[in-house]
């Protein structure tokens, strides 16, 4: 087991403040989706976080550890939960800006760059500890892929709810 630190410091504060800001944003901004869609758009982020962290940060690759130790801690769980408001804001901004089909790649690129920036801050705060030569830039294609999947899922879920209404 790798231990990076054992105090309540920058990484924990970063996660808690990030989660609080995300939840506040979710509560304060005007609602644009049904409660079920709010739930599913939140879960998209949490699921993606779990999916990649539990496939990239476990053996045989184990490219990074999350937070203070390589063990699974409650603060790790909270850090995955903080992806929820981010995915919600992703879908919200997609609808709010009424992104045209030809601008979808640009929208995805913008969010991937924003995610890279957030990951860089998280690394500075001690949330992620890279191993085995893993680098911030390796996450970039993952963000592009995840964001593209989210857009596909958005159109799928919208189509489903439309057909359910008719």
């Amino acid at each position: 087991m790798n231990i990076y630190d054992n105090r309540f410091n920058a990484n924990e504060w970063f996660i808690l403040i990030g989660l609080a800001v995300g939840i506040s944003a979710f509560i304060l901004i005007p609602k644009r989706f049904s409660p079920k869609h709010n739930l599913v758009y939140m879960i998209c982020g949490i699921y993606s976080g779990f999916f990649f962290d539990h496939s990239l940060s476990v053996e045989p690759v184990n490219y990074y550890d999350v937070n203070d130790t390589s063990n699974y801690q409650f603060i790790d769980f909270l850090s995955y939960c903080s992806y929820g408001p981010i995915s919600y804001l992703f879908f919200y901004s997609y609808v709010y800006w009424k992104v045209k089909r030809s601008y979808i790649p640009l929208f995805i690129l913008g969010w991937a760059l924003f995610s890279e920036g957030m990951e860089w801050v998280a690394v500075q705060m001690g949330v992620f500890h890279y191993r085995e030569g893993y680098n911030l830039y390796y996450s970039f294609p993952i963000y592009l892929m995840v964001n593209s999947c989210w857009i596909l899922f958005f159109h799928y879920s919208r189509k489903k709810s439309m057909s359910a209404r008719t």
Partner: peptide, 24 residues
């Protein structure tokens, strides 16, 4: 849509429990 939500939530739960049993 309900099944997609359930699948995602079950994955989160399964990974969490298994991480505790396996890693911790």
């Amino acid at each position: 849509l309900d099944m997609i939500i359930l699948y995602a939530v079950n994955t989160i739960f399964d990974l969490s429990i298994f991480a505790i049993v396996h890693i911790n």
